[in-house]
Design a protein around this nucleic acid. Structure first.
Length: 480
DNA sequence: TTTTGAGTTGTTCGA
DNA sequence: GTCGAACAACTCAAA
C-alpha cells in the first residue's frame, strides 16, 4: 500500500482525473490544493477567477467528502508546501495533472526534481488538453501556426483516450494534515459585493459543469453552428469557466459530443463544429507552448512599431460600457455583471478597443483577465493577438468590425442590448444599435437624452476606421 | 528546392 | 436591395 499526495491544479474534478485515479488505485490518497500567487507573477488570478476558485474548491471538497475524503488547502510556495505535506503525511508518491502555463511548468519541473532527490516517486499526467502542447507537429517537426492544418492533424492523430471514471472510493489516511481555512484566503469580494451577478449565473464545480454540458447537448448543440454567433440566444455551451478550472475535461467533452452525434446523426455536423471550438483551445495552448511570451509580446514583430494611443479616459469608457455603441456597451456590462461575455461580442468589443480606439491589445487582455470567470492565459492571449492582427493565423488588417452592422446582424431585435443597456430598452429595434440615428421625438418617446442618459458615440465609426487603416498601413513602411 | 493552394468569425463601394 | 470585387500581400504547410 502506498500513500500518495494528489496536488490538484486546473483539474478540480473527480472524474477523468488521471492523477487521482492512479493514487486511488495504489492506496491512501491525500488530496491537496496549493495556492501560489507569487509564482504566477503578473498572471496571478484576477478577481472573477478568484471568486470562481473559492466556489470550485468548496465544491471539490464537498465531492471528496462524499467519497470519504477531503481537500487539504495550503497557501504559499508550491514546491515547499508540497514537500511539507509529503513529509507530514509520509507520502511515498506525489501525483498531479500538469498545469501547462509557462510559470506553472517551471514550478512542476522543480518539484519533480526536488522529490526525486528525496526518493519520493512522482508522476504527472495530462488532464487539461486533448493533445499535449508540442505533441501535434508539422511534417517537418515544427509547431503549427495556422489553425486549419493544425486541427486537421489533430483529427488524424489517434483519438484521445476514453475518460476515466470517478474513483469508487478514496482511502483516507489515519490522520489528516492541517488544512487552511478557505474563507481566510479572501478569494471572495470583501469591500463591495460585486459577485451577485456571478452567483445568479454560475454554479462552479464538477456537478455544475455536468449539468451545463447535459443542458447544452439536449438543448443547444443541434443549432450550435449558427446560434453560437447570436448573443441574443443561449446558443453557446457556456462551458468555458468549467473547462478552465478543469471541472470538466476536454476528453469528456470530446467523447460526449461523439456519442451524442452517434445517437443523433442529424447533430453530427454541429458536434464537429463544437469540437473545432475545442480545437481552438488546443491551438491556443499550442501557440503559448511554442511562444511562452505570448501574453506580453507581439507574435509578429512589426507590431512593436504600432502607434498605440495612451488614453486612460477612453480605456475607462470602454471598460465601463460607456462608448456610445450599444453592442459594445452591452458586452462590457455583461462581462462586468456576470464575469462572462458572449464570444461574438468579445470579438466586437476587442476590435473596438484595438481598432476604433487604437489602444494596445494588452490593456484589453488585462481587463479581461481580471473580469472573466473563464480568464485563461493561453486563450486570452491568443485571442487578443488574433483580433489585433499581431498573432497566429490572425485577422487581416482590413477586418474592422462595424459595431452597428454587427449588432443589427447578430442581435437583430436588439434584445441583447435591451437586456444589458436598459436605458435603451424602449427604443425601436431598428434604432437600438445606433440611437443617434433616431429622431428627436423618437428619442424623447423612449426616454433617452443622448449625452445624458446614454453617451453619444465616443468616436465616429468612419473616421475611426480610416484612422485604423492608416495605423496599420504604417507598419509596412520601412523601420525608422 | 521550389511550387502551389489556402487561410474562423468583415466592410465598403460601385454596378 | 443585391452582388461581386477590392482591400495586401504574406506566410504557412505540404506536395
Amino acid at each position: 500500500m502506498s500513500t500518495a499526495l494528489v496536488l490538484f491544479r486546473q483539474d478540480l474534478r473527480l472524474a477523468d482525473n488521471p492523477a487521482l485515479h492512479q493514487a486511488a488505485r495504489l492506496g491512501t490518497v491525500i488530496p491537496a490544493y496549493v495556492l501560489d500567487d507569487a509564482a504566477a507573477g503578473d498572471w496571478r488570478m484576477g478577481g472573477a477567477s478568484r471568486w470562481w476558485l473559492h466556489r470550485s474548491l468548496a465544491a471539490l471538497d464537498g465531492d471528496l467528502q462524499r467519497q470519504g475524503s477531503r481537500l487539504i488547502l495550503r497557501r504559499g510556495d508550491f514546491v515547499s508546501q508540497a514537500l511539507d505535506l509529503a513529509k507530514r503525511t509520509g507520502a511515498n508518491a506525489v501525483f498531479w495533472n500538469r498545469h501547462v502555463e509557462p510559470w506553472a511548468q517551471r514550478q512542476e519541473n522543480t518539484l519533480q526534481q526536488t522529490l526525486a532527490e528525496r526518493g519520493i516517486a512522482t508522476d504527472a499526467f495530462n488532464a487539461n488538453l486533448l493533445f499535449e502542447p508540442g505533441a501535434i507537429r508539422t511534417q517537418s517537426g515544427g509547431a503549427f501556426s495556422v489553425f486549419t492544418p493544425f486541427w486537421r492533424a489533430c483529427r488524424a492523430a489517434p483519438a484521445p483516450a476514453a475518460p476515466l471514471p470517478k474513483p469508487k472510493r478514496l482511502t483516507a489516511p489515519d490522520q489528516w494534515p492541517a488544512s487552511e481555512d478557505l474563507a481566510a484566503w479572501r478569494l471572495l469580494p470583501s469591500k463591495t459585493d460585486w459577485a451577485g451577478g456571478l452567483r445568479a449565473e454560475w454554479q462552479p464545480g464538477e456537478s455544475g459543469a455536468r449539468r451545463r454540458l447535459r443542458h447544452f447537448l439536449d438543448e443547444a448543440l443541434r443549432g450550435y453552428p449558427t446560434a453560437r454567433d447570436r448573443p441574443d440566444t443561449d446558443g453557446t455551451s457556456r462551458l468555458s469557466p468549467h473547462l478552465h478550472f478543469g471541472e470538466i475535461g476536454p476528453r469528456q467533452l470530446w467523447h460526449a459530443a461523439h456519442s451524442h452525434a452517434h445517437a443523433h446523426p442529424a447533430a453530427a455536423q454541429a458536434a464537429d463544429k463544437f469540437l473545432s471550438e475545442l480545437g481552438w483551445r488546443e491551438f491556443s495552448y499550442n501557440i503559448l507552448h511554442a511562444h511562452p511570451r505570448l501574453p506580453e509580446r507581439n507574435l509578429r514583430q512589426e507590431f512593436d512599431r504600432f502607434p498605440w494611443r495612451r488614453d486612460a479616459a477612453a480605456l475607462r469608457a470602454w471598460q465601463q460600457g460607456r462608448t456610445g455603441y450599444p453592442i459594445v456597451d452591452a458586452g462590457m456590462r455583461q462581462l462586468w455583471h456576470t464575469g462572462w461575455m458572449h464570444n461574438r461580442v468579445r470579438m466586437i468589443t476587442a476590435s473596438f478597443l484595438i481598432k476604433h480606439l487604437l489602444i494596445d491589445w494588452r490593456q484589453g487582455q488585462r481587463w479581461f483577465w481580471d473580469t472573466l470567470v473563464d480568464a485563461d492565459l493561453a486563450n486570452n492571449a491568443a485571442s487578443w493577438q488574433w483580433v489585433a492582427g499581431s498573432g497566429a493565423d490572425a485577422a487581416p488588417y482590413f477586418r474592422i468590425f462595424n459595431p452597428v452592422l454587427q449588432g443589427q446582424k447578430f442581435d437583430s431585435q436588439g434584445e441583447y442590448v435591451a437586456r444589458w443597456v436598459p436605458e435603451l430598452r424602449r427604443l425601436e429595434p431598428r434604432f437600438i444599435h445606433a440611437p443617434w440615428t433616431a429622431s428627436a421625438s423618437q428619442l424623447r418617446l423612449a426616454g433617452i437624452e443622448l449625452g445624458t442618459t446614454y453617451p453619444k458615440p465616443m468616436v465616429d465609426h468612419a473616421a475611426a476606421r480610416s484612422r485604423a487603416l492608416a495605423a496599420f498601413a504604417s507598419l509596412k513602411e520601412p523601420a525608422p
